[in-house]
């Protein structure tokens, strides 16, 4: 019994310690705002994290938009309400699917890469040799990745939404023959700038902070062995996915929940 209690206490302390180290790392890395001569590092990270994620984002967005439009169309056609396909698609994408799916893909594509890269740097002692040379690895390695992630995910989300809406156009309008003007006009009538697009983008910023933070910390705190890096990478993907979905529920609740 006492042993269980001790186990629980150790786990709790471990969790708090992790949280504290992660917060410290995050705060210290971001406290020095990006400086002009670090811009090259930032560029490289935006390239690695953002540009190289474009392909998977665009392919997934197109398929998801097409599938949702197809499902909506077949169901709504039963009520003769095919005109609502555009509205439904835009609402679902802007409010939920866009930010969430992009964040999940981002965690799988970019988050795991960040963890593995930093983990390998740690296990080959590149991080400690940097410290030895008087270069702050937080500033040189961690900060550019955090900034790049926070910049890239909202942009990727916007691109995801646009491509998915076009995927919907291809299926609903070009293929199934919905009326293009009611597709667009219906969307414009209902979708609101802040309520739908703005809040979706706010969500995406939250997810960006979450995913890059988890990815960088898992790499930075990895057990410096081959097995350790593998476990950290797995943890990054699992933890970010779960946290994104859980945070999404909380954000939706606080943004759209009606407590009146």
């Amino acid at each position: 019994m006492i042993e269980y209690l001790r186990y629980l206490g150790a786990e709790a302390l471990d969790f708090l310690g992790n949280l504290g180290r992660a917060s410290l790392m995050w705060g210290r890395a971001l406290s020095g705002l990006p400086q002009w001569n670090d811009i090259g590092l930032l560029m490289r990270q935006i390239y690695n994290i953002g540009v190289l994620s474009l392909v998977i984002i665009i392919l997934s967005a197109f398929s998801i938009g097409a599938v949702i439009a197809l499902q909506f169309h077949t169901q709504l056609a039963k009520f003769g309400a095919e005109d609502a396909v555009g509205v439904g698609l835009a609402m679902v994408l802007l409010r939920e699917l866009g930010p969430v799916v992009t964040a999940l893909l981002f965690a799988g594509r970019a988050g795991s890469a960040i963890t593995a890269e930093i983990g390998l740097m740690k296990s080959t002692e590149q991080l400690s040799s940097m410290e030895m040379m008087g270069v702050d690895p937080l500033r040189r390695i961690v900060a550019p990745r955090l900034w790049a992630g926070m910049l890239c995910l909202p942009l990727l989300t916007a691109i995801f939404n646009v491509v998915a809406i076009y995927g919907g156009v291809v299926v609903a309008v070009e293929w199934l023959g919905a009326d293009p003007s009611s597709y667009w006009i219906g969307m414009q009538d209902v979708v609101e700038l802040w309520e739908d697009l703005g809040k979706g983008m706010v969500k995406s910023v939250f997810f960006a902070v979450l995913v890059t933070w988890i990815a960088v910390y898992q790499g930075y705190d990895t057990v410096p062995t081959a097995e350790g890096i593998g476990m950290s990478t797995t943890r990054t993907v699992v933890l970010s996915s779960v946290m994104v979905l859980a945070t999404d529920f909380l954000l939706t609740l606080s943004m759209y929940g009606d407590f009146g």
Binding site: M43, Y47, V51, P154, A158, I159, V162, L193, D196
Partner: peptide, 26 residues
């Protein structure tokens, strides 16, 4: 790298403008 990053950021900004104008009808 710089050129592709520039293109990426531009594409993201354009996507936002597109969403605002064409989708939410501002």
């Amino acid at each position: 790298i710089e050129i592709s990053v520039g293109a990426f950021v531009l594409a993201g900004a354009l996507a936002l403008v597109f969403l605002a104008v064409k989708v939410s009808g501002v």
